[in-house]
Every structure is written in C-alpha cells, then in structure tokens.
Computed example of a mutant assay.
Amino acid sequence: MMFTAGLTAREIADRCKQNIATVHLHLKNREKYDPDFFAKHTAALEARGPYRITTKWRRRVKEAQDFYAMHGRLPRSTSKPAERSLAEWVAEQRRLFERNELPQAKIVLLEPLPNWNVSARAREREMQWKKKLALFIAFVDAEQRMPRYRSYATEEEHALGVWLHNQHQRRTENRLELWKLEALNEANPGWCSRG
C-alpha cells in the first residue's frame, strides 16, 4: 500500500525500520500478483510533486535542529565537510522559500529551526543597519541636531548624514522596510523632514 501511495523504497524501509534490500525483494514479489504495481507507484510518486517531504528531507531537518541545539547557531558553509553539506541544504531550503517554491508542510517543519529562512548576509546587513541607527541616536543626543551629509563637521557626521539621506530616499521610494521605518520613527519622530 505504501508503495502504490507514492512512497519510495527508501522511505518504506526507513518507516518500517527494514533493510532496503528486503523492501526491494518484497516489491519485486508483489509485482508478480499485480502487473500494474509499478505504474501505480510512478503515478502516485509524480502526484507528490518535486518538493515532497521525503525521509531523507526529514532526516536533514532533524540534523539541522540537532546541530542548532548543540552549537546554538546554524551550520556554516566555511566549516568541515559535514557541516558545510548541512549549511548548503539549509541554504537550498531558504532559496526555495524565497522563490515561493517551498510547500507549506516543509515550512512548518522548518519553523523550530531559528532564522533558517534568513541568509547570513541579510543578518549581517541588518546588524550593520542597527549599528548605524545606534550611532545616529547617539549623534542626535550629543549634538541636538540631525547629521548632515553636505556641510558636515566630521567624517563620522558625513557617514551618518549619507546613511540618513539614503533612508530618506528609500522611504520616499517605498523601499524602506517597515521595521526600519518604525525603528527610525521610534528613535527620532522628526527624522524625516518631508511627508
């Protein structure tokens, strides 16, 4: 029944805790009694789609969760081969998620893995933005004015002025992420001079 429902021999072996050779032998014998046995399996397997949840996929999720529990972080692609392989698998899930090609069932199973759907590069950019926000807040508190990018007094002010100008540009073009807009509004409600 499992085979004609679309499960692979490997999935059946894993689910039944049997040797895959034993499963193959059983399937071969079953074909003698039902000539359409393999055709039914092929049709059911195709109906599951290319992104079905396989035993191997479930095993990788478990490995990623165990890795996170042990190390307190996601696997890195710059580490040992086993960790690199796991990092590449997580990155592939992230790419599928970003392209809206990851089924909801897989997304639900990945949810216990913190930040699986955020790339390391995006996290780094977010941290850099938050650092700039903190520098902006400190500058306004110390100088009692907004940083300028044209007639600036120091290079630090110039850098903050350019950063603030870029936030203005993104806001007017509706490209400033909502959480950033809210953070800027909370930090300094008068940061945007134009409506």
Score class of each variant (00 low, 15 high):
Ala47Arg: 10
Glu177His: 13
Thr78Ile: 01
Leu110Gln: 02
Glu173Lys: 15
Lys106Arg: 13
Cys16His: 11
Leu176Cys: 11
Ile12Cys: 05
Ser151Ile: 02
Leu74Gln: 13
Thr42Leu: 15
Ser119Pro: 13
Leu110Val: 07
Trp57Cys: 02
Phe3Asp: 03
Ala187Ser: 13
Leu27Gln: 14
Gln167His: 00
Ala120Ile: 09
Glu63Ile: 00
Arg84Phe: 00
His26Gly: 02
Leu113His: 14
Cys192Thr: 00
Leu160Asp: 12
Ala105Asn: 11
Glu63Phe: 02
Ala105Met: 08
His26Lys: 06
Glu63Trp: 02
Asn19Ser: 07
Asp66His: 06
Cys192Pro: 00
Arg121Gly: 09
Asn166Asp: 14
Arg145Ala: 12
Glu182Gly: 09
Val23Arg: 02
Ala9Leu: 05
Gln128Cys: 08
Trp179Tyr: 12
Gln128His: 13
Pro103Tyr: 05
Leu86Ser: 05
Pro35Val: 03
Gln93Cys: 11
Asn117Gly: 03
Thr22Ser: 15
Val108Leu: 08
Ala138Gly: 11
Ala153Met: 14
Arg10Ser: 15
Arg58Phe: 00
Thr8Phe: 01
Arg99Asp: 07
Leu25His: 09
Glu126Gln: 08
His24Thr: 08
Gln65Trp: 01
Met1His: 13
Glu83Asp: 06
Ile53Ser: 11
Arg175Thr: 03
Pro50Glu: 00
Gly72His: 07
Glu98Gly: 06
Ala159Tyr: 05
Val108Phe: 01
Glu83Trp: 01
Leu102Ile: 12
Ala134Gly: 12
Glu177Tyr: 10
Trp191Thr: 07
Arg175Val: 01
Lys28Ala: 08
Trp57Val: 06
Val162Tyr: 08
Asn117Met: 06
Arg99Cys: 04
Thr42His: 14
Ala120Glu: 12
Leu74Met: 13
Asp14Glu: 14
Cys192Phe: 14
Lys131Asp: 04
Trp191Arg: 05
Arg125Met: 09
Leu110His: 04
Asn185Val: 04
Glu88Thr: 02
Ala159Val: 10
Pro103Leu: 05
Arg148Leu: 09
Arg94Lys: 11
Gln93Pro: 04
His41Asn: 12
Ile20Trp: 01
Arg125Gly: 02
Trp163Arg: 08
Ala122Asp: 10
Glu11Phe: 03
Glu143Gly: 11
Glu155Ile: 06
Arg99Lys: 15
Trp163Glu: 04
Pro35Met: 00
Arg94Phe: 04
